[in-house]
Computed example of a mutant assay.
Amino acid sequence: MIARLVLGALLSAMALGQLVSFDRMPDILTTYGLTSGAASTALAAALVAAEAVGGLWLLARPRSRNAAPAWLFTAVAVAWTVLAAQAYARGLAIDNCGCFGTYLAQPLRWFVLVEDALMLAYAAVLLHGSRSRGASRDRDRTEGRPHRGHRVSDPGRDEERSAEKS
């Protein structure tokens, strides 16, 4: 749960920084050399939307094991990793990686790739947590066992308890 809160705060902060400096985001993304013009604007909008929805979802429902916010986090992590890795491999000089828009700017260097690798690792943890909880919940349903402390009623046993109390 704490990891979901921290990662939700991180995604929300990224979305906020990018949203506040949205007029610069297409230019920042264009420096990565994969998109330009309308495609950079669309990519910026998609990143901000995924970060905002995923981040707020993780913050609002940290105990939920719904896989949707984990997949949003994963999509964001993969997008930033692809952008950074290909630009670094091509030797592009990028003054601001853009993760927080124009805020907390840092140049693209090897350390950004380490940060991206950590984001991918956190994404794997989120996905694993979503799957393992979902799988056990599905198994409980198919095997007729109660989930999360819900008691399954047994009419014969309930009658015995009533008789014992009288």
Rank of each mutant, 00 (worst) to 15 (best):
S36L: 00
A105G: 10
M119C: 13
R145P: 03
G37F: 04
L126N: 00
T41M: 09
F73E: 01
V48H: 06
Y32M: 01
I2E: 08
H128Y: 12
A42S: 10
A45K: 01
A124Q: 08
V78L: 13
S136L: 13
R161Q: 05
A84K: 01
A44Q: 08
A124D: 06
V76I: 10
R141M: 10
L92A: 07
A46W: 09
G54S: 08
M25E: 08
T41E: 06
W80C: 00
Y88F: 15
A45Y: 01
G55R: 06
M1S: 12
D138F: 12
D116G: 05
A93H: 05
G55Y: 09
R161G: 00
A52Y: 07
A50K: 01
S166Y: 15
G129N: 06
P62Q: 05
F111H: 06
L104Y: 09
A46E: 04
T81F: 14
L16D: 05
C99L: 15
A121E: 01
R63D: 15
A105H: 12
A3I: 14
F111V: 13
G54L: 02
W57P: 07
H150I: 14
A84Q: 10
A42E: 11
P69G: 03
D158W: 04
E159H: 04
L29P: 01
Q86F: 03
T74K: 00
F111A: 06
G37C: 08
D23V: 13
A93P: 00
A75E: 02
E51P: 07
A75C: 06
A70D: 07
A45E: 03
I94G: 05
L29R: 01
P146A: 12
L11R: 03
E164N: 11
I2F: 12
L118A: 15
Y32N: 00
S132E: 14
A60Y: 03
R133H: 10
D154W: 06
V20L: 15
A105F: 09
D154Y: 04
G98A: 10
D138I: 13
L104D: 00
I28A: 01
P155L: 12
T31N: 13
R137D: 11
L11W: 02
R63A: 14
K165S: 05
D116N: 15
D27A: 11
W57D: 07
V114I: 15
L10S: 11
A121K: 00
W71K: 00
L59P: 05
F73Y: 15
V20I: 15
V76G: 04
D95P: 07
T41Y: 02
R145K: 12
A39Q: 07
D158H: 03
R148F: 11
R90T: 11
G91H: 04
I94H: 02
E164S: 08
E115F: 13
E164V: 12
L19K: 02
R4F: 08
Q86C: 02
A79S: 15
A9C: 12
A50I: 09
T81A: 14
L16R: 07
R141G: 02
T102H: 11
T35L: 11
P146V: 06
A123E: 10
A15D: 08
